[in-house]
Simulated assay, not measured.
Amino acid sequence: MIKLSIIIGNCNTYELTRNCIESIYKHKPNFSFEIIIVDDASTDNSQKELRSLEKKYKNLKTLLNIRNVGYVRTNNKGLNSSKGEYKLLLNSDTLVHQNTLQNLVDFAKKNKDAGVVGSKLLNIDGSTQESCYNFPTIWNVVNYKKFAPNSDAPIVVDAVVGASFLITPLSFKLIGNLSEKYVSYFEDLDYCREVKRKGLKVYYLPDSLVIHYHGESFKQLASSDNQWKKLIPSSIAYHGLFKHYLLYIISLCYQKYQKLLQR
């Protein structure tokens, strides 16, 4: 049986995807793995180039979407086609380090309560990237943001960013695919919330290092000025309509209050 399936979504980001794949083969683990690239109806030369990679790497396959369906359904298509015991959702704008994949799976095997394991994400300059979440509540919304745990040891967190997101066999059995209530954004928070509800844990693993060119894989989906608008339907799906607007109003009032204090 294949030990690990690595699912990478691609949408007009062929060069990033190719670099990501090359980093995997440069730092490949000592167990069997497959790479599944799902192209989300790219309009550049991605599909042609990805097909050529299939000839180069025997354990890589490409799936093509006829139309653009978004991040979640693209990754779910890869999950549905995967044969690995463990499933890793890996963004196309990432590069893995030595032992990144090995350490993820080894840790998950040893910790039977793990539902999701997230890598430590790094910026291009090697600095630590904020890659964990607390679940949003009315108490933390005014200062809500991602964070990077100050720990060199594995630590339990509420949620991890989906850029390098290992789903364990038990978690996949209990929860399955990403929820298609979402197109993109909030799907990682939602999955981690379901993991907690099933009595499993979400771990942040500092010795699994991944360089993340933050936001590059989503640039083709929306301009930076419009990306925030895509958060709104996902926030409503995650929180529900009432809580979404309650959190929005609390956050807005806090921002106005802060501006008054600065006068």
Rank of each mutant, 00 (worst) to 15 (best):
N30T: 13
F31E: 08
F31R: 08
F31P: 14
F31G: 09
S32G: 08
S32D: 14
F33M: 12
E34Y: 11
I35Q: 09
I35W: 12
I36T: 08
I36L: 15
I36K: 06
I37L: 15
V38S: 07
D39G: 02
D39P: 00
A41L: 01
A41Q: 01
A41F: 03
A41V: 02
A41G: 00
S42M: 02
S42P: 01
T43C: 00
T43K: 08
T43Q: 10
T43N: 03
D44L: 04
D44Q: 08
N45A: 13
S46M: 03
S46R: 01
S46N: 04
Q47M: 10
Q47L: 06
E49P: 00
E49G: 02
L50W: 02
L50H: 02
L50K: 01
L50D: 03
R51K: 15
R51W: 07
R51H: 12
R51I: 11
R51C: 11
S52F: 00
S52P: 00
S52Q: 09
S52V: 04
L53P: 03
L53G: 08
L53K: 04
E54W: 10
E54R: 09
E54V: 08
K55H: 11
K55P: 00
K56G: 08
K56V: 15
K56Y: 03
Y57P: 00
Y57E: 04
K58P: 04
K58D: 14
N59Q: 13
N59S: 11
L60G: 03
K61N: 10
T62C: 14
T62P: 00
L63T: 04
L63H: 05
L63M: 11
L63C: 05
L64P: 00
L64Q: 09
L64T: 01
I66T: 12
I66V: 09
R67A: 05
R67P: 00
N68G: 09
V69H: 03
V69S: 05
V69W: 01
G70Q: 09
G70N: 10
G70A: 11
Y71W: 12
Y71D: 10
Y71T: 13
V72F: 05
V72C: 11
V72Q: 08
V72D: 08
R73F: 03
R73M: 13
T74M: 10
T74W: 01
T74V: 10
N75Q: 12
N75C: 13
N76K: 04
N76L: 08
N76R: 07
N76T: 11
K77V: 13
K77C: 12
K77Y: 03
K77L: 15
K77M: 15
G78P: 04
G78V: 02
G78F: 02
L79Y: 13
N80T: 12
N80F: 11
S81C: 13
S81G: 06
S81A: 15
S81L: 07
S82F: 06
S82I: 06
S82Q: 09
K83P: 03
K83G: 05
K83A: 06
K83W: 07
G84F: 07
G84S: 08
G84R: 05
E85N: 11
E85F: 05
Y86T: 05
